[in-house]
Each structure stands twice: as C-alpha cells, then as structure tokens.
Design a protein around this nucleic acid. Structure first.
Length: 589
RNA sequence: CGGGGCGUAGCUCAGGUUGGUAGAGCGCUCGGUUUGGGACCGAGAGGUCGCAGGUUCAAAUCCUGUCGCCCCGACCA
C-alpha cells in the first residue's frame, strides 16, 4: 500500500500551537495527527488514526493469544445498572450524565463493569460456561476536573477494557495472570518501559490490584520501589509501624506557652529556645500535627475527621483520597471550624487537662485517626487546645487514643518497604494499564450467579483489566521525539517508510515512483511525498515532523542510480544504490 | 474551588493606553520565476475582533456583565 502525501488529509503547522505544553500534545497537533474539539476531546486525522490502529492491532493480537474475545458495548448507557452498584452516586461529577426526551437518566460510560456483568448474567448460568474473558476497545468518558496535556488526560479516551468471569478464586487468579502476562507482552512490543506496582484496591471489594506505570517525570502517579523488588503506588504503600514503647517511665504531660507558632517550624524553634532537650534538639518529627479534613460522601454528607501525623510529614492528598474513598477529601473550611468551636485552630491536640478532646467518645465527637508511627508509648509535642499553648510529653496510649489508623502521610525516599526489602526510592510514572481482581462485588450487586458442579448457586468472581490506548499513543510520542518532530518506533509508525521526491525533475519522479512500487512489493506501507511544487527543504522538514522512522530521499543521485536511506531515529543518512535499496531497507533494525 | 494568563483570519501574533474604513508573517488560490534544508515577484480569497448590554455621532479599543480556553495550585492547621 502507498499513500501520496499530496492526497493525504493533513496540514502540518509551522509553529507550535499555543495551547499545548507537553511534547506529545504539541507535536501530534503540529504534525496533523489530532485536532482539539473541546477540552480533553480530540478528533483523529488519518495519521493519528493509523498509529492508533497499529497499537490496537498489537493489543488485539495479545488479547486473542490470552484467550479473550472481542465485543463492543455502547458508550451511552442507562442509569440503572450503575445505580445498582452505587457508582451513579460514587462517581459524583466525574461522569457525563444526560437525559433523554422523556427525562430518563443516561450516562457516557466511564468504564463498563456493570453492563459486562449483566450481559454475562443474561446469557450464562452454568459453571461450564466459565471461565470467560471478554474485552472491547472503546471510547470512555470522564468529566475530569482538569483535562491536561493533550491525550495524556482526556475526557474522551480510548481504552481496552477486559473483564474476566470465574466461579472459583483459583480461576480468577489464572484469568488475572493471563491478562497480566498479556500486558507485559504488549508493553514489550510497544517498546515502552514499565514498572508493575501494587495499587490501591479501593475501598470496596477487590483483593489484588496492580498498575503498569511508565516511568516518566511528567507522570501523574508517584510510586516507590526498592532494590529488593518491592514496587507500589504511593496510594497503596503501607507504613511499617515502629515497635511500641513502655509508657511506665514516660514523663507527665506539661503545658507550655507557645505564642506566635503558626507553623511546625516556628513551634520547633520556640521549643528549642525556651525548653531545650538535653540529648538533642527538638525536630519537627517530635511534634504531632493534627490535620483537620472534611470528608464529603457521595450523597453529599460532610464529616470532619482529624488525623494526627508526625510534624515533619504532610498529608498526601492522593493517599487520603484512596484511604477515604469513595468520600472526597477536602481541607476543612472556616465554616467547618465555626461549627466546631471546640477546635482551637493552630493549637489542636487530642488532649486537654480536662480530658480527651478528639475522638468519637470525646466531647467534640470528631473522629480522630493516627498515623501508624504514633504507636503506644511514643511522646509528642502537640497543641493543648488553648490559644498559644502546646504540650510536651503527650504519650500515646496513656494520654490519648484514637479511633483508628490513617496511613495517609507522605511517603519519603528512604522509608522502609513493608516487605522488608529495604529503603524505598520515589519515582514518577504514567499509568498505562491496570489489572484488578474485583472479586464478587459487582456479581453480588447485580446478581450474577451460576450453578456449580453440585447444582448449587455460586456468585461469580470477576476481574477487570484496562489499558489506555490513546494514552499509550501519547506516551510513545512523549518518548520518541526531538526538536524537529516525532520519531515513531517501527511497530506503531503510521507508515513503514516515507519516500521523498526531493526534486522537480520529471525523470527523478519516475524513479521515485519505481522505488515506491519496489518498497510496496515488500509489503511495506509507504508514504510518498509526491508534492510537485514543494521545495526539498519543506519536504525534509515535514518528514522529520511526521516521524516515520525510515525515510528514502530520491534526489540528485537518482539519475546515477543512488538514493539516500535515512534513519530518522539515528539521523544517519546512507547513500544506497537503488538496486540494493530493498535489501538495505529490510536490514534496518 | 482558588490564583495567574489569554480570547482579533486556518496557525502564530500585532493593534487597544490616545475611539475614527481591521493588520502582519506563515498557510491557502491564480500567474510567472526558482528547486537538496522551510525560495521569490505580482495579483487574490479569507475575520459577526468570544458573547451580551452600556457610553458615544462613531467601539476591536472605554465601562458592566457573561461565556470559554490555557497554566499553576488544591492541605501543612
């Protein structure tokens, strides 16, 4: 197959589009692969669609190899199934909702667990029908608060989503492993680095969940890993609690004056100045910071919760969101404080000489959770619940207790991994895939049961497996580009080879046509820049911008039987006799 | 939700303070010259200046409101 550039529906831009920041977005627009239609919504032009189709092909092949069958569900779905699982509420503003002419509620699906589950329920009712894995490549819709970076976080995006159905836990493990293996092969074929990290399994159901992260500084996820092989999204990281200490010889709590200490820093400075320790200076890690959070439930209910964390650590809002999901986490507002006059802003602590201040059984009744590091016997400097007063030697387990653990403080480089494999390092990554053992949550909510070997009804156990197709495309573009344009790997390039007729000499054009035919005969998909009145410089520039990895320049030397074989990836241009071109092209990596 | 920036031709942007027939470069069309790194000459097409209201003889420009877009932040008590 060959395509003439003069006929291709594309217009390259000489200048960067003003609204694009990241390289993939900027270059995909400039090279005429995609065009923005709305925030986070893009139209696909022939070049972009070709790359997308090639990525999809690789996914289809690996899904088939993993025994998954392709189906296709609509994006437009009724409310009811999502109502049954609670996700109509849970998603909040995160989904596009619409009404039909009768006023019935619909949504544009953000994922399809519900309708896949219902379809299997409709059609199957025996263990003999299982296991089953079905998948689709389909557009998903999420009303992101802030779409950004072009294709990297869109409101419409293409996703391969697969769902497995088993009637035993062992079956689920096998189905999960098959998808996980397929993902590894897919990313390897696409030439994308990836790290498989433990992921947050969510507040509801789900036993095992892993993300495929592509390490990159522009990634939106932070993950930790150790040399010992541990890897986890920070949202799924579990802090190792220290051993409890004896409370017998802990000194009694001592209240002290602490004016002008709005921050932990100023508090530590004051403590060192007025009440120095004998063994070492006070540090932020000696203080207990009581962070007031507001949890907003999907139904709109608002609850305050206070989390005590060591003062040298901030609360990681993403970890908090994961921990309190499905509730949204917000900072407490002035209005929240006004409704809770028992909280002395800036001097909040769990204790007062009169008794406990925080906790469900205290007089404020506000739920109080503690960082895992705050184990029994540890002593803290914290607020005394009076203006300009803090307290020393407040001892956990003796002077205050909590309603539970909240492991939501930031994770730091050097923290110990929970599996004992050593200190962690932090890195940024882009989530390209997610495999997830859902367990029986959806099957239970929607009544998907089958008869087992004994004639007994059993609830089906499920897995869901997603890969962001358009995000992968952006990730590849992000990885392969330079100041002149895109550079595609051969596995997904829109064309296999780009032939440039770098002249207006008619006989040379004839040679170029022959070369196109010759390359086509090898099975290559050829892009032929046949534009007659366009100068060579423009053609070279466009070739570099479009990013087809192999370029053949047919120019002056053509009359003598020589063309240039140009590797866009290395920049190397090799003069090649036309007779040897096909072979030389085949030899390229 | 908060902060900042921006809405003028397909793209990138001037013009606005000082109101007076809407501009440039690139791209596009036609004619001619040119042809291995984004050529040149000439002639053209193309814009409700985001939207609404107001002031004015007159508004892209001043005023009010509104909508949209981009970026950053979302907490450290």
């Amino acid at each position: 197959m060959s395509t003439r550039l003069s006929q291709l529906f594309v217009r390259t831009l000489r200048e960067d589009p003003v609204d694009a920041e990241v390289a993939s977005h900027r270059l995909l627009v400039r090279a005429g692969y995609i065009r923005r239609q709305a925030p986070g919504v893009f139209a696909w032009l022939p070049l972009g669609l070709r790359v997308r189709r090639r990525i999809e092909r690789i996914i289809h092949e690996e899904m088939a190899a993993a025994g998954a069958q392709e189906v296709l569900f609509p994006a437009l779905l009724p409310r009811e199934p999502y109502e049954a699982t609670g996700r109509w509420e849970e998603y909040g503003d995160g989904i596009f909702r619409l009404k039909d002419r009768k006023g019935a509620d619909y949504l544009l699906a953000p994922t399809h667990e519900e309708v896949f589950t219902l379809m299997v329920k409709d059609l199957y009712s025996s263990y003999k029908d299982l296991p089953l894995t079905i998948y689709q490549i389909q557009d998903k819709y999420r009303d992101e608060a802030r779409p950004r970076a072009g294709l990297l976080r869109g409101r419409e995006f293409s996703m391969k989503d697969a769902y497995s159905f088993d009637y035993t836990d062992e079956g689920l493990d096998a189905s999960y492993q098959a998808q996980r293996d397929a993902y590894e092969r897919i990313f390897q074929r696409l030439g994308l680095d990836y790290v498989i990290v433990k992921a947050d399994a969510g507040a509801m159901g789900g036993s095992r969940s892993e993300e495929f992260l592509h390490p990159t500084p522009i990634g939106e996820d932070t993950f930790v890993r150790t040399d010992g092989g541990y890897a986890a999204n920070v949202e799924a990281f579990h802090t190792v609690p220290p051993a409890a200490l004896s409370i017998d010889d802990a000194p009694e709590p001592t209240v002290f004056e602490s004016p002008d200490t709005p921050t932990i820093e100023t508090l530590v400075a004051l403590a060192n100045e007025r009440h120095p320790r004998e063994d070492r200076p006070w540090t932020a890690a000696d203080t207990l910071k009581n962070v007031v959070l507001a949890l907003v439930a999907p139904d709109g209910g608002r609850e305050l919760v206070i989390v005590g964390v060591p003062g040298d650590r901030d609360v990681d809002m993403k970890r908090a969101e994961a921990a309190f999901s499905p509730a949204e986490v917000e900072a407490a507002t002035e209005a929240d404080f006004a409704r809770n006059p028992g909280l002395v802003k800036g001097y909040i602590g769990p204790w007062s000489p009169e008794g406990p201040v925080l906790g469900e059984t205290s007089f404020t009744g506000i739920r109080y959770l503690l960082d895992p590091r705050v184990v029994e016997g540890t002593q803290w400097v914290t607020g005394a619940n009076e203006p300009e007063r803090h307290v020393f030697s407040l001892t956990a387990g003796r002077d205050f207790i909590s309603d539970g653990i909240a492991d939501i403080a930031e994770v730091r480089e050097g923290d110990e991994a929970p599996d004992g494999s050593g200190p962690v390092e932090l890195a940024r990554g882009m989530e390209l895939g997610h495999v997830f053992q859902l367990g029986r949550k959806y099957a239970e909510a929607l009544g998907l049961k089958v008869l087992d070997e004994n004639g007994k009804l059993v609830t089906v156990t499920m897995g869901s497996y997603g890969i962001g197709v358009t995000r992968i495309l952006a990730a590849i573009a992000e990885l392969g580009n330079d100041e002149r344009g895109l550079i595609w790997p051969r596995s997904v390039a829109p064309f296999d080879v780009h032939v440039i007729a770098a002249t207006k000499d008619e006989t040379v054009y004839g040679v170029a046509e022959d070369i196109v035919a010759q390359l086509e005969a090898t099975g290559a998909d050829v892009l032929f820049d046949d534009r007659l009145k366009v100068s060579p410089g423009v053609k070279f520039g466009d070739a570099e911008l479009l990013g087809v990895p192999i370029i053949v320049v047919v120019g002056k030397g053509a009359a003598d039987g020589t063309v240039e074989l140009w590797d866009r990836r290395t920049g190397v241009k090799t003069p090649t006799p036309i007779a040897e071109l096909t072979e030389a092209y085949r030899q390229l990596p």
